[in-house]
């Protein structure tokens, strides 16, 4: 266990590689863990990660490795940036390796399929890790990799985690805000992906800016209603991970969930649409999870339910929209936010 003082990023996908670049840009050496030997070699020799970040030149401060044990042994601060469906498995492996004095942050947006667990809950179940936090916000990897200014929120109940995470990431182009509502930031980050699918549908149908604004506003209302029922702080939905991330996900054609909505509006079946995108669209699983959660929590979520019907019950997007527009009268700002 030589020198456990490094910053480690687990997962060399699109966002994981971007986080590694951010840490490098902040002036730190990074150890980037990937499962793929091929990817490791590419990052080490060619300084690119074509599959996920195209032509972007990976910083020389980034060292790629496939050795998880070594990475964790050397890590003081560890970022976990793997898809939500791989999070449990990675956490299990971390259970054998993690130490109680390490700081862990994750940047995974989604809920576990079946259990509806948040990612931090999975870590708490599988490992000795306590000092953990979550990273979320309006963070389109492509723009960040181009060096365009962006902000994010880092939420943790532990001041040390907030400080360590901020120090690892903060640079002139990347501003880190802090908060302590871990559950809220995780839930907002997961739930907005469902709204993004609806936004993609609306864009493809050329419904205009008013429709889009209505979708975003109703979207954040429903996110807040469910989030608060599940333990989030209301104010979190006004922050970086709430309205911030929702706006960008609904506006940006880069978002996978948005792309999925576009494909669905064109008449593609769910499987075809997913195959065409070629990456995981977290919103699909989250829509399913929300459907199951809303059976247990009596929260009214018409927009979420319609997205679910479009995804899984073959409801056409046009009919879904019409049904949403003709619902019984409703409050503007939900009671929980008033």
């Amino acid at each position: 266990m030589s020198d456990p003082s490094r910053i480690v990023v687990l997962g060399a996908g699109n966002w994981g590689t971007t986080v590694a670049q951010l840490v490098a840009a902040a002036g730190h050496e990074v150890l980037l863990w990937t499962r793929s030997e091929e990817q490791r070699q590419e990052i080490q020799s060619a300084h690119t990660n074509r599959r996920y970040t195209g032509e972007v030149e990976i910083s020389a401060r980034v060292e790629a490795t496939t050795d998880l044990e070594r990475a964790i042994a050397q890590g003081a601060v560890v970022f976990i940036v793997v898809p939500s469906n791989a999070f449990r498995e990675v956490s299990r492996r971390l259970g054998e390796l993690a130490r109680p004095d390490q700081v862990y942050l994750h940047g995974t947006k989604g809920l576990e399929l079946g259990t509806h667990r948040r990612m931090s809950e999975i870590l708490l179940e599988e490992t000795c890790i306590r000092q953990l936090g979550v990273l979320s916000g309006p963070n389109i990897a492509t723009e960040i990799l181009r060096g365009q200014p962006a902000g994010t929120v880092l939420a943790s109940r532990y001041p040390r985690v907030q400080e360590a995470g901020r120090r690892a990431l903060q640079s002139k182009d990347f501003r880190v805000f802090t908060g302590d509502d871990v559950a809220g930031v995780e839930l907002a980050g997961a739930l907005k992906n469902v709204v993004a699918i609806a936004a993609g549908v609306a864009d493809e149908m050329r419904l205009g800016e008013n429709t889009k604004a209505m979708l975003i506003t109703r979207g954040i209302s429903e996110m807040a209603k469910l989030g608060i029922a599940l333990g989030a702080e209301p104010s979190t939905f006004f922050g970086m991970s709430g309205i911030g991330d929702l706006v960008v996900t609904c506006e940006s054609p880069h978002s996978r969930n948005h792309k999925l909505g576009v494909a669905l509006a064109k008449g593609a079946k769910l499987e075809e649409a997913l195959a065409a995108i070629g990456m995981v669209a977290e919103g699909v699983n989250t829509a399913k999870a929300v459907q199951e959660l809303s059976q247990r929590w009596p929260v009214d979520l018409p927009l979420f339910h319609k997205v679910h019907e479009v995804l899984f019950q073959g409801l056409s997007p046009a009919v879904a929209l019409e049904q949403l527009m003709t619902l019984p009268p409703a409050r503007d700002v939900p009671q929980v936010l008033a």
Binding site: P4, P100, D101, C128, Q131, R160
Partner: peptide, 10 residues
Amino acid sequence: LDPSKYLENG
């Protein structure tokens, strides 16, 4: 696990 590590700075 060693609980004293929860109180250390790394």
